[in-house]
Design a protein around this nucleic acid. Structure first.
Lengths: 159, 159
DNA sequence: TATTGTTATACTCTATAACTATA
DNA sequence: TATAGTTATAGAGTATAACAATA
């Protein structure tokens, strides 16, 4: 073994008696760090959202339809980064579960408008609470100010 | 020789005359914001790294092997979140390109040790520079202090 | 002619079980 | 019996072309 003996407090990555590996230049990249933090949070997301059978994309979808009633599939597809052909089956599943309705657009017979059913709104409300709880849990090492600052900086990048 | 240029779509601009949609509760979620920022940065990553034919996972791999010479595939697989069966073809490609070597582990004939070739180290060095440039470009709206603070907060979550 | 949503399809990514050769 | 790496395979996730109905 070489000279790396910094013996940091090993959290999740290294198993057994493995020395932690040097992440080198990666630690200076925002993209890399965003992904690592994202994966950690999403691991907990999957766990906590399992009881609702909601994948991340499902949760994003019902939340967006909830706050943007009568949105068209076209706009939704762009918003959640799903191509129109792939959005079909996603909406189909949510509709089959009785959470979402696709109705013909009165002003354009080609398109549709989306809305949550009462069941969909109820589930969305519960899922929102769970999402906030799990986020607080996954980011419990941050103070309130740090959490708000992190949100601000991330949004500065993409918004 | 199929040099396929994937014309990545630039986001951030709502298409045509569409009103921007309300992201609602999502904007308060660190996970959601990490993903959005990550996708923005990675769009530029794909563009700038195209000339090296390095996908994100390829870049992470050669960087990690570079800073951790003689690492085993097992440890590497855990570090980059790739299952051992899926790591094989990845290393095979890098080896075929003459960037990486898999050598038998002298102390355990079951396993191997990985190292970059001189060509691999040269490419890694260039890719590192490009990665830093593209990151600075993608996060140009942040001040130096904001950038360092963002790194600190993200690492606080997963490290 | 252009657009919405759908169908069909293919390509990538990821996950799992079973195999081999060592230990 | 356990482990490192491989093989085979299946399932997600994602991308594009072509089509029908409508504008």
């Amino acid at each position: 073994m070489s000279t790396q003996t910094t013996r940091k407090r090993v959290r999740r990555v290294s198993a057994q008696d493995e020395p932690p590996l040097d992440q080198g230049a990666l630690l200076d990249l925002i993209g890399y760090n965003c992904r690592r933090a994202y994966l950690d949070i999403m691991a907990l997301f999957s766990l906590r959202m399992e009881k609702y059978a909601l994948r991340p994309v499902d949760y994003t979808t019902i939340t967006l339809v909830n706050t943007n009633p009568n949105i068209t599939p076209k706009r939704l597809a762009r918003a959640i980064n799903v191509s129109p052909p792939n959005l079909g089956p996603l909406l189909e599943r949510l509709e089959t579960r009785g959470l979402l309705e696709r109705r013909p657009n009165p002003s354009d017979k080609r398109s549709q408008v989306l809305a949550l059913t009462p069941e969909g709104r109820a589930l969305c409300s519960k899922a929102d609470k769970t999402a906030n709880q799990l986020e607080n849990e996954a980011t419990a090492m941050l103070t309130g100010n740090e959490r708000r600052e992190l949100l601000r900086l991330l949004q500065k990048i993409y918004l």
